[in-house]
């Protein structure tokens, strides 16, 4: 999967949940949304990217959420 597109998608999701003041709750929201909506190869690609590149280009909230994904 084109990683730039996945980064953009993850960041857009985090922009929505960023309205939540409790950032743990917000990260949980991003994580759950990705779990419920992303096909496994998309999840694998973003997890791998985060692990191998430190999540460059991802928002802090997206990074926090993806770090919780397995």
């Amino acid at each position: 999967m084109h990683i730039e597109r996945l980064i953009k998608m993850a960041n857009d999701i985090s922009d929505f949940f960023n309205a939540e003041t409790d950032k743990d709750v917000a990260a949980e929201g991003v994580k759950n949304h990705i779990l419920m909506a992303w096909e496994p190869r998309m999840r694998t690609a973003i997890i791998t990217y985060h692990r191998e590149n430190g999540g460059e280009g991802l928002t802090d909230l997206a990074k926090a959420a993806i770090a919780q994904l397995k």
Binding site: M1, H2, R5, M36, A37, W38, E39, M42
Partner: peptide, 10 residues
């Protein structure tokens, strides 16, 4: 979950 239409294109 499966692929959405734009994900299928990707």
């Amino acid at each position: 979950p499966g692929l959405r239409i734009p994900n299928m294109f990707e």
